Amino acid sequence: MLKVITVDDERAVKQGLRKIIELNCPGFTVVGEAEDGQEALELVDRCDPDVVITDIMMPVMSGLELISRIRQRSEAIELIVMSGYDDFKYAQEALRYGVRDYLLKPMNVEAVSKLLNGLRDSQLRRSADLERYRSCLWECTAIVERLADQLWQLDEAGKARSLAAIAERIGEARLTDGEQAQLHGDLAACLRRLIRERGLETQETTRPFEGGAEGLGRLAGFYADAIRSGRNWGQRSAIRAALAYIHERYPDPDLSLEEIVALTDVSPAYFYKMMKEETGRNFKTYLIEYRIAKARELLLGGDLKTYEIAERVGYPDYPHFAKLFKKYVGLSPSDFRKNMGNY
């Protein structure tokens, strides 16, 4: 329910408004009535309304001063002013304070119900739009996390798949041009943070983002070039062989660093150093993140029980798996499947 406060020094006006709202404006409830602006401010602090409908000319504190004070407290409260023909110019002045609209006295059912019902429908649309944006951001952020790993490993094919997946998901979300621009900016900021956490510092990490989907692709390409130029990728065959072995053997709960190092001709200390440089992760963290990524795919792509998925990605101890999953994903495995499976 949207909470309404009415403000007028005439009792009959407030009673008439309450009756109109209760009978003709579903989704609204009058939670308070005030005779002047000072009393109304106290109600605003106490009731946290969604809508304030106020007269212009009142004792103690005028409607104009009231809406100015409310705006200092909150940008979210919808403000509607009432006026007679004689003070119509003040109602127009009130529009400068972000007032939604004005009503002319005497109040009539059609004008009040049309304004409030339109406001309610607008609120519902904004709520639905916000939820659609958040769900798209959530999914695309997960793809960007994968993209950061692909960039660090210089996986060009994977990078292309991730960028295409982001573009496809945003297209499905039916976002406005402004929302798409904001989303791409948010994703670029996320990618910058993830790459910076892996140890790469460049001018690009602080440069303002521009360019939407194309800009995100350019940013990813810039990072790939910077990472490639900063290492002898391809010459460290031991690391590439180790990663391939991890990708094949990750379901084995006993997979260990010692087993991986035994496949190479380098010392454990040097292997650790190369692993961190190449992937941005040590062996333990890389293996956990790879297993969690595989678990996410299985949770969304089939009917396996969550404990069965845990076993398939190398965690026969389900409570341990669930704890790790929530730490890295932010949701339990069952909540992840339930929430993400709806999109």
Rank of each mutant, 00 (worst) to 15 (best):
M1N: 13
L2H: 09
L2M: 14
V7S: 05
V7I: 08
L17M: 14
R18K: 15
C25M: 00
E35M: 13
E39P: 05
A40H: 01
E42P: 00
C47Y: 08
P49I: 01
D50F: 01
D50W: 00
V52M: 04
D55V: 04
M57V: 13
M58K: 01
G63P: 00
L64N: 03
L66S: 04
I70M: 04
S74P: 05
E75S: 14
I80C: 04
M82P: 03
Y85F: 11
D87S: 14
F88L: 14
Q92A: 13
L103A: 02
K105D: 07
N108H: 14
E110I: 15
A111Q: 08
V112H: 00
S122F: 03
L124D: 05
A128G: 03
S135H: 11
T141L: 02
T141S: 15
T141K: 05
A142K: 12
A142H: 09
R146S: 12
A148L: 01
D149K: 15
L151R: 00
L151M: 03
Q153L: 15
K159T: 15
S162V: 01
L163I: 11
A167L: 09
G171Y: 08
A173Y: 07
E179I: 07
D186F: 02
C190M: 12
R193V: 09
E201H: 10
Q203R: 12
Q203S: 12
T206H: 09
P208M: 02
G211C: 06
G212T: 03
E214M: 07
E214F: 04
L219M: 10
A220L: 02
Y223W: 05
Y223V: 06
D225T: 12
A226Q: 14
R228L: 08
S229K: 12
G234R: 03
R236F: 13
S237V: 13
R240E: 13
H247N: 14
E248S: 11
P253R: 02
S256T: 12
S256N: 06
L257G: 02
A262H: 10
S267W: 07
A269R: 15
Y270A: 09
Y272Q: 15
M275A: 11
K276I: 08
E278A: 12
N282Q: 08
R291W: 02
A293I: 05
A295V: 03
L298K: 13
L299Q: 06
L304E: 04
K305V: 08
V313Y: 00
G314A: 02
P316F: 07
D317F: 08
D317N: 15
H320C: 09
S334C: 06
F336V: 09
F336N: 06
K338Y: 12
K338N: 11
